[in-house]
Simulated assay, not measured.
Amino acid sequence: MKIAKDIKELKDAISKFSGSVGFVPTMGALHQGHLSLIQKARAENDNVVVSIFVNPTQFLPGEDLDKYPRREEADKKICEVAGVDILFMPEISSMYHSDEVKLKAPSYLGYILEGNRRPGHFDGVVQIVMKLLNLVQPDRAYFGKKDAQQLVILQKMAKDLFLPYEIVPVETVREDDGLALSSRNVYLSAEERERALSISRALKAASRLIMAGEFSSEVIEAKMSEIMKDIDVEYIAIVDRDFRPLKKVKIQNSIILVAAKVGKTRLIDNLWV
Rank of each mutant, 00 (worst) to 15 (best):
I128C: 04
E73I: 12
R71P: 02
A74F: 11
N47I: 07
S94V: 00
R71E: 12
Y108K: 13
P56I: 11
G83K: 04
S36R: 04
S51E: 10
T57H: 02
Q127C: 06
H97P: 01
S98N: 11
V125K: 03
N116A: 15
N55P: 06
H121F: 13
G33C: 04
E114A: 08
Q39D: 09
V84W: 00
H31L: 02
N116C: 00
P90A: 07
G110T: 06
V101A: 13
P69S: 06
L109Q: 12
Q58H: 09
Q127T: 15
Y68E: 10
Y68F: 13
C79R: 03
S93E: 13
G120A: 11
V84Y: 03
A41K: 01
I52P: 00
P56L: 10
E72A: 14
S93D: 13
H31P: 04
F59S: 05
Q32Y: 10
Y111R: 13
F122W: 09
S94Y: 09
K67Y: 14
T26G: 11
S107W: 08
S93A: 15
I52Q: 00
H121R: 08
D123P: 10
V84T: 08
N116E: 15
V84S: 01
C79V: 05
G83I: 06
E73A: 14
F59M: 07
C79L: 01
V54L: 05
F59L: 08
M27Q: 05
L60I: 12
E100L: 08
T26P: 11
A29M: 05
L30H: 06
P119H: 06
C79D: 01
Y68A: 10
R118G: 07
L37G: 02
Q127D: 06
G124C: 07
D46W: 06
G62R: 13
A41H: 03
S51A: 06
L35E: 02
V48R: 00
G115L: 04
L65D: 06
I86C: 03
A105F: 12
G28S: 07
S98A: 13
Q58N: 11
V126A: 04
P90M: 09
I78W: 00
A41R: 04
Q58S: 07
D99H: 10
